Amino acid sequence: MKLLALAFALSTGQADSISPVTAPAAEAVLISRQFSFTEGPAPDREGNVYFTDQPNNQIWKYSTGGQLSLFLDSAGRSNGLYIDRKGNIIACADADNELWRIAPDGKKTVIMKDFRGKKLNGPNDLWIAPKGGIFFTDPYYQRNYWTRKQGEMEGQKVFYLPPGRSQPVIAAEDIKKPNGIVGTPDGKYLYVADIGDNKTYRYRIGKKGRLSDRILFCPKGGDGITLDERGNLYICGNGISVFNPEGVQIAHIPVPEKWTANACFGGKDRDVLFITASTAVYTVKMAVKGVE
């Protein structure tokens, strides 16, 4: 009966009230509305979440105890973030279209600054594979703080930065405008949201970051994406749409903002969905856990 009710709710657009992934009666809880535009949430090992306020050039921290604090000013206009096994923040530093490594004490190191001498469009989101390689998306969004008015790159691609290297390689160029990106914990598959063509694809990850066997995962694109322990994919945009491993939508999490940019699982038990949505950040108590 529960599955039948869920199917009916999805077909009639009432799935917000019946969700197999959120805790019973859970709703998006406003944490703060003090930002210009929030992005890039990423949890550390303890479950604290770091996120960016890109227009204000800042990285913030939301602790497992519910406290907000400013972690870093002058953050390279960072967008997407991911935390490596050593606790460093790897950031898509949008000011000069670089990748940065930010140590726990705030020390910054540029780990990638160009592609074959050309400035990238604007690294947007990233995921670190189990062996340390970095996949990142490179769409072009004109920024008002850039002096340039067009990109140096042809097309908008997915790149892979091998461990210990400073030059990325092209991982995929068969996408119109890649945005959100996340891989499975076993390192076998990579999901990429094509916000330009309203589709999300899944690739098989091979040796040296090679991607193959692209399939259309679902006919919906979006901004940031993340995965839970059941293999469900969360696609941000108009709230958060949740798709099971077969690409079937099973839930929608409403967020009372004009745009939901990104989300990740945080908290001590990884069962709190932390959401960056325009000028605000929210949390939702979940019935599942994340895999970041």
Rank of each mutant, 00 (worst) to 15 (best):
Y140G: 10
N238E: 04
T276R: 04
S212V: 06
G87N: 09
S36Q: 15
W259I: 14
F71P: 04
T52V: 12
R210P: 01
G206L: 04
E173Y: 06
Q142R: 13
P130D: 03
A42P: 00
G40P: 05
P123C: 13
R77L: 13
T226E: 01
I275E: 06
D114Q: 08
D94Y: 11
K289H: 08
P43I: 14
D186I: 14
I225E: 06
T276L: 12
N244H: 00
E292C: 13
L161W: 07
L273H: 03
G122F: 01
Y145I: 10
Y191L: 08
N232D: 15
I275W: 02
Y82Q: 08
I253S: 09
K2F: 13
T260D: 01
P163D: 05
K258N: 15
V288I: 13
P20T: 10
A287W: 09
A5N: 13
N198C: 10
M286L: 07
K113I: 02
R230L: 13
I195P: 00
K285Q: 15
I235H: 03
N124I: 04
S36K: 13
T109K: 02
Q58E: 11
L70M: 07
A172V: 00
M153N: 05
E46C: 10
G47T: 04
L190F: 01
Y141W: 11
Y189G: 01
Q167V: 01
I83A: 04
A287H: 14
G290R: 02
N238P: 00
W60K: 03
Q142P: 10
D271V: 00
N79M: 09
K113T: 09
A93L: 10
P256W: 14
D16P: 11
F265Q: 04
L273M: 12
V169Y: 02
T283V: 11
S11R: 09
T22P: 01
T52F: 09
N198M: 13
N79D: 15
D105T: 13
Y189C: 05
V272G: 07
D138W: 02
T64A: 12
R77W: 11
T184P: 00
A261M: 01
D73E: 15
N232M: 12
Q14A: 15
A261Y: 03
T184Q: 06
G266S: 07
R165W: 00
G196M: 11
A129C: 10
L216I: 11
N124C: 08
D194L: 09
A26I: 02
T38E: 02
L216Q: 05
Q14F: 15
D53S: 09
R101Y: 06
F159H: 05
N56M: 05
Y201F: 14
P219L: 00
F243Q: 03
L190E: 07
K61S: 04
P219I: 08
R202S: 00
